[in-house]
Nucleic acid binder design. Structure first.
Length: 254
DNA sequence: CGGACTCCCTGGCAGC
DNA sequence: TGCTGCCAGGGAGTCC
């Protein structure tokens, strides 16, 4: 499921098409359009060009040259942006001078927005710093003391880009229990969490996704009796904030 | 305030 | 074989 590393990959796909003329926008399923009609989207984009896109957390932000509007994409759980062959879950297709760009999303939990200046400002104001970019000093300050660690990491208003799987992976690497109140961490533990978050994200961004490696926790979370890739202890499964949570009781006591 | 819960949405799968 | 119901989780919203 798309988290920060996947969205960074989609950003690169879109970046390759920046500056090319948008010939047409074909909306196959208007259910993914949020606050914009198919007609307005088409009118606003056709004949224009995307400026170089940026990413904040899981948001992909593409200003439209020649217009005061910005296309903002979110990929929910099952979304993607690609130039590959057509697929039945392609919801919106951008016909560009250099090929077709496909917004694909099976479950339609999120979608596309076309925001003006104030709408974009509002969106960005409600989104915390990017998990890949946030410096150590800022990271120390932003974790709300009275919250469970995992809930804080996955709250996009606190820190943006981490989803359920990456949060578990990072906490496992930092050897911290998901339910630990953030305020109970020592300064050294906060620094370790920041360091593990950065290294995990850097590796995943290079791969364009969370890599399917046996040495990562993520690959073992769906195994009924999965073992910790580090110490072999049986992994524990629970729920945090309504989401499945996997951790090693030996590496991550608490 | 924070945490638990529900809802949206679809496809895959277990169980009958 | 085919039905039903549950599960996955990003994010918004509600309730306590």
């Amino acid at each position: 499921m798309p988290e920060l590393p996947d969205v960074e990959g989609f950003r690169r796909v879109l970046a390759e098409h920046a500056g090319k003329r948008i010939e047409d926008v074909v909306v196959h399923d208007a259910q993914v359009l949020r606050g914009v009609s198919a007609q307005r989207l088409r009118k606003s984009l056709t004949g224009q060009r995307f400026e170089p896109p940026r990413r904040l957390g899981k948001w992909l932000i593409a200003p439209v040259g020649g217009r005061p509007e910005t296309l903002v994409l979110h990929f929910g759980m099952t979304g993607s942006l690609s130039t590959g062959p057509p697929h039945r879950h392609d919801r919106v297709v951008f016909r560009m001078a250099g090929g077709e760009l496909r917004y694909r999303d099976m479950r339609k939990l999120q979608g596309l927005r076309l925001l003006g200046e104030s709408g974009l400002e509002e969106l960005l104001a409600g989104t915390g710093p990017d998990a890949l970019e946030v410096p150590k000093g800022r990271f120390r300050e932003l974790l709300p003391a009275r919250r469970q660690l995992k809930g804080a990491l996955t709250d996009q208003a606190v820190l943006s880009g981490l989803g359920n799987l990456l949060a578990d992976e990072i906490l496992w690497r930092a050897k911290l229990n998901p339910r630990t109140p953030a305020g109970e961490l020592s300064p050294a533990e906060v620094d370790r969490l920041h360091a593990r978050m950065r290294s995990t994200l850097r590796t995943a961004v290079r791969a364009g996704r969370v890599p399917p490696r046996a040495s990562w926790l993520t690959g073992h979370r769906d195994e009924p009796s999965g073992a910790c890739p580090r110490c072999g202890t049986a992994l524990r499964h629970g729920r945090t904030g309504g989401r499945g949570t996997v951790w090693c009781p030996r590496c991550q006591p608490g």
